[in-house]
């Protein structure tokens, strides 16, 4: 057993002494953070600060050079995770219908069809779908494809969901709809989520906690609480509290960009 098997109650992901370098340039040099359980954490920071690198390392997609990442004391291998890619076109399987894409991770887990169908019906009930899941991904719009992608990642009822700029390829109107859809589903399920966003408004809107990173090597510029009531709606965007948090975060961001 290692020392990290111990974790603070309420913490889901414990990161200690994380190190990562690309071609000799350190991106993370001894990075520590605790991410809360059942909450949405947005990661925001200057361009190239390693936001995506961070969630890819936590999600186990990218090897780390050193340090430890544990999920309530468990390793990534022992943890059920979901991952939503920015590029939904390249993440979905175009040879399968949308519904079969959603079935796939459950099939990998060896779950029999009746049980899979039961779970997916339950999942579908949580979304307001206005399209047919028996279509192929390329027959759907971008927003619909990303919805399928999110459903696929949630089908296995992940303990942690990672989202890497999930809406950055969508137009603004669709982004607003998708944010609300995502918020509704994540809050209803109480899933721990880590979201990378390059849009400060979106990062704050969705988050319970906002992780602001500095330029590389990345350190925590600030780990802010976002105490806005849920459910949030587009009206929240003009709420005085929202505007205040955003102004504060922007100030911290600018300081972070200017460097230490």
């Amino acid at each position: 057993m290692n020392a990290l098997a111990w974790f603070t109650p309420g913490t889901h992901i414990t990161v200690r002494g994380l190190r990562k370098a690309f071609g000799g340039n350190p991106v993370y040099a001894g990075f520590d953070i605790d991410l809360p359980k059942g909450r949405i954490v947005s990661v925001f920071g200057p361009n190239g600060c390693g936001k995506s690198t961070f969630i890819n390392m936590v999600a186990g997609l990218l090897p780390i050079d050193g340090g430890e990442i544990l999920f309530e004391g468990k390793t990534i291998r022992e943890t059920r995770i979901g991952y939503v890619f920015q590029n939904y076109r390249e993440a979905l399987f175009p040879w399968q219908r949308a519904i079969d894409n959603i079935h796939y991770p459950l099939k990998l887990m060896g779950i029999a069809r009746p049980e899979r169908e039961r779970r997916i019906a339950e999942l579908v009930a949580g979304f307001d779908l206005k399209f047919d899941l028996h279509r192929y991904p390329y027959e759907l719009s971008g927003g619909q494809q990303q919805t399928v992608s999110i459903m696929r990642s949630l089908a296995i009822e992940p303990e942690v969901l990672f989202l890497d700029e999930p809406f950055s390829a969508l137009d603004y109107e669709m982004t607003l709809i998708m944010r609300d859809q995502l918020q509704k589903v994540l809050v209803a399920r109480g899933t721990t989520a880590v979201l990378v966003s390059h849009d400060l408004e979106e990062a704050i809107y969705l988050a319970d906690k906002l992780l602001l990173l500095t330029r590389r090597p990345s350190r925590i510029a600030e780990f802010l609480d976002i105490p806005l009531a849920r459910p949030r709606s587009p009206a929240t965007l003009t709420d005085t509290e929202f505007v205040r948090i955003k102004a504060h975060a922007l100030e911290l961001f600018q300081t972070a960009v200017r460097g230490s």
Binding site: L61, G82, F85, N87, E90, F93, P105, L108
Partner: peptide, 25 residues
Amino acid sequence: RQTRLLAARVMGASRLRIFRDVLFY
């Protein structure tokens, strides 16, 4: 597409399954 292979991996597909279910298609 690397993203597709990565997507299968993150869903827990073994090397063989990635080969059969993703790479082949």
